[in-house]
Every structure is written in structure tokens, then in C-alpha cells.
Amino acid sequence: MKLVYVFDAYCGWSYGFAPAMSEIARRHPALPVEVVSGGLFTGARRVPIREFGYVQDSNAKISELTGVRFGAAYQRLIADGSFVMDSGAAARGMAALRTAAADRAVHLAAALQEAFYVDGLSLSDPATYRKIAESAGLDADGVVAALRSPAAQAAAEADFRRSHEIGVDGYPTLLAVDGDRGAVLARGHATADQVDRLLARIG
């Protein structure tokens, strides 16, 4: 059995779930985790953030339920309203980070979201991935080179297909997959304890 964690780096609910996901991975080191990027803001949904008028109310609810904080630099982005979230660029970045350290994908996904939601950094900017790589002790030049490679684009597209094929239509979604069988452990919000109880039932 393995876990399949489908998230979008620009999804506030995925950011809220990141601490629980990190705790789940810590509690179950023998369970492989496949981290898959979703495509929340692609195509026609790549518009200035001001067009998503619900963002601040949603963030308040996320903070209340999960305890995560949204940093001052991110708040300034929201207030300005011109920033465009591009899930394709974020998925390429996640692919580059996975290439550098596949066994740390859960941690790196969380770091990617902190870069945006705390530090207000663009996930389309190679400098963001250089910073994440350096903080994680990875080869920063290698990560930036991977980000710019055709392989990263192919991996991002494969992630979007994978998310669709397993029927994920909302982020985050955590699945337990064993062969052809899959069970939903979390969708939108869950605590590590709640996920553990479901894992115990199916394990």
C-alpha cells in the first residue's frame, strides 16, 4: 500500500493540510507517498488574484480550522490583487524538487507552499526554487536546471493526468492505494489522527 497525496501549491486548503500531511508521513515512514500536483489555476483560471473575491474569507476559515498562518508578504500580494497564480509553473517546480529528493517530496511540497503563503514568493520564479533548494540542502543549480527542462513540463502534465485519472476533483485529497483499490483518507481538511483511524480500518 502507498499514499497518494494530490495537492495544488496555490490551494489554500492544501496549505492548511500541509502540517497534518507532514505528521502523517512522519508517523508512517514505511508507507511510500506519491505527491501529485493538481491543476487548480490553469488555462482560463490563470487570472489576477483580485478576481477571486473569496480568498480572504477562505483564508480566515483555513487558519481557524488548521492553525496555519498567512504571512505579511502574502497578505500584501492579496491586497495588491494583480498577482496571477499559475499551477502549471508550480507543478513544474514541484517536479524539479521531486527529482532532487523524491523521498522528501512531502516536506518539499510544504516548503513550496510556505514560500507563497508565508513569504509571498512567486512559484513561477526560478529564484524561489533556488531558495527552497538551498534551505533544504539540495543542489540549487540542479533544481533550477531541472525546472527549466522539458522533463519538468512533461512531469507536470503527467501529474495533471494522474489527478484526473484517479478521480480527484478537489484539493487536497489523500488516498490509500493498494493495487487497483483506493480509499479516500482526506479531502479538503482532516487531522493526522483522523487519517490514522481510517488507515487502521483499511490496514
Score class of each variant (00 low, 15 high):
residue 4 V to C: 06
residue 5 Y to R: 04
residue 7 F to T: 08
residue 8 D to K: 02
residue 8 D to H: 09
residue 9 A to Y: 06
residue 10 Y to L: 14
residue 11 C to S: 15
residue 12 G to F: 12
residue 14 S to A: 14
residue 16 G to P: 11
residue 24 I to C: 03
residue 27 R to L: 15
residue 35 V to D: 09
residue 39 G to N: 13
residue 42 T to C: 07
residue 43 G to H: 07
residue 44 A to K: 13
residue 44 A to L: 06
residue 45 R to W: 06
residue 48 P to H: 08
residue 48 P to L: 08
residue 48 P to G: 01
residue 50 R to L: 02
residue 54 Y to L: 05
residue 55 V to G: 00
residue 56 Q to E: 15
residue 56 Q to L: 14
residue 57 D to T: 06
residue 58 S to Q: 14
residue 60 A to V: 09
residue 65 L to R: 13
residue 68 V to G: 04
residue 69 R to C: 10
residue 71 G to V: 03
residue 71 G to Q: 04
residue 72 A to K: 08
residue 75 Q to W: 00
residue 77 L to Y: 02
residue 77 L to M: 09
residue 78 I to H: 12
residue 79 A to P: 01
residue 84 V to W: 07
residue 87 S to F: 07
residue 87 S to D: 09
residue 96 A to P: 06
residue 96 A to D: 04
residue 96 A to Q: 02
residue 97 L to W: 07
residue 98 R to E: 13
residue 99 T to I: 00
residue 99 T to N: 12
residue 100 A to H: 03
residue 100 A to K: 06
residue 101 A to H: 06
residue 102 A to H: 12
residue 105 A to F: 05
residue 105 A to C: 04
residue 105 A to K: 01
residue 106 V to A: 14
residue 114 E to I: 03
residue 114 E to K: 13
residue 115 A to Y: 12
residue 116 F to A: 01
residue 116 F to T: 04
residue 120 G to E: 10
residue 122 S to I: 09
residue 123 L to N: 11
residue 124 S to V: 06
residue 129 Y to M: 09
residue 132 I to T: 10
residue 132 I to F: 10
residue 132 I to C: 11
residue 134 E to V: 10
residue 135 S to T: 14
residue 138 L to D: 05
residue 140 A to R: 12
residue 141 D to L: 13
residue 142 G to Y: 05
residue 144 V to E: 14
residue 144 V to C: 13
residue 146 A to K: 09
residue 146 A to P: 01
residue 151 A to D: 13
residue 155 A to L: 09
residue 156 A to G: 02
residue 158 A to Y: 08
residue 159 D to P: 05
residue 161 R to N: 10
residue 163 S to G: 07
residue 165 E to S: 15
residue 167 G to P: 12
residue 167 G to M: 03
residue 168 V to H: 07
residue 169 D to P: 01
residue 172 P to W: 13
residue 174 L to M: 11
residue 174 L to H: 11
residue 175 L to W: 08
residue 180 D to W: 02
residue 182 G to F: 02
residue 182 G to R: 15
residue 182 G to H: 12
residue 184 V to G: 01
residue 186 A to E: 07
residue 187 R to Q: 15
residue 188 G to M: 10
residue 188 G to Y: 07
residue 188 G to I: 11
residue 191 T to Y: 05
residue 195 V to S: 05
residue 196 D to Y: 07
residue 200 A to D: 15
residue 201 R to W: 11
